[in-house]
Write a protein that binds this DNA or RNA. Structure first.
Length: 195
DNA sequence: CAAGAGATCATCT
DNA sequence: GATGATCTCTTGA
């Protein structure tokens, strides 16, 4: 019951909100690491100054110009990786950043990878969750509708009334786009990167 | 607690 | 050569 191409081809703001409550599955040697998606951010195409694709088509942003459902993993601040899933049609470069998870399965391995025992500090942040699930540049440009290494499993539907909308984090340089309420998280959930 | 600094390197100019 | 879709640790009240 994984999510397919059609799901990711939708409008980025819709995908970002509908991803809440779904399960991110990472398989390593047949072992599953699973987390419920609790927080996302939408990066909406070439006009969105916070979206990497707004700087044009480059080797790094190439993935976002491709098919929906592919992973876009990049390194930030020289130390952390961030995981996105590409959305919309080919040549419409957009993606959803997965910002936080609620650990569900494989928690011991997550603790080990993070060097942390506090469950609340395992996957509450884009850099943290990549570390917890061992997601690196090797997992860039994978088809999440096909590969067993990384995909989204269907979970529960979160009602619009249960979704909090906030400004995106860490993009103060994005001019008029910095104030867009394109960050989404599940209301009253503890596994959020910041309030 | 909150605020600030430092880590560290791929990417683009 | 500058910068960043982050995180952790230290400092100080």
């Amino acid at each position: 019951m994984r999510l397919g191409r059609r799901f990711f081809e939708q409008n980025t703001l819709d995908v970002a909100q509908q991803l809440l409550g779904q399960y991110l599955v990472r398989e390593i040697n047949g072992k599953k690491l699973i987390g419920k998606i609790t927080e996302t951010e939408a990066y909406c195409g070439p006009h969105d100054l916070a979206c990497h694709a707004s700087k044009g088509r480059t080797p790094r942003t190439e993935v976002m110009f491709g098919k929906a459902g592919f992973s876009y993993v990049y390194m930030i601040y020289g130390m952390y990786n961030c995981l996105n899933i590409v959305t919309e049609k080919v040549d419409s470069p957009a993606a959803v950043l997965i910002r936080s998870l609620e650990p569900v399965e494989g928690i011991e391995l997550m603790k080990k990878s993070r060097g942390q025992n506090t469950i609340n500090n395992l996957t509450t942040g884009p850099g943290k969750l990549c570390q917890a699930l061992s997601i690196t540049k090797e997992h860039n440009n994978l088809d999440a509708t096909k590969t067993s290494m990384l995909y989204i499993r269907k979970g529960t539907h979160i009602k619009p009334s249960q979704i909090v909308k906030k400004k995106r984090i860490g993009i103060d340089y994005a001019g008029a786009y910095k104030d867009k309420l394109w960050r989404f998280y599940i209301k009253n959930n503890n596994f959020i990167s910041q309030k």
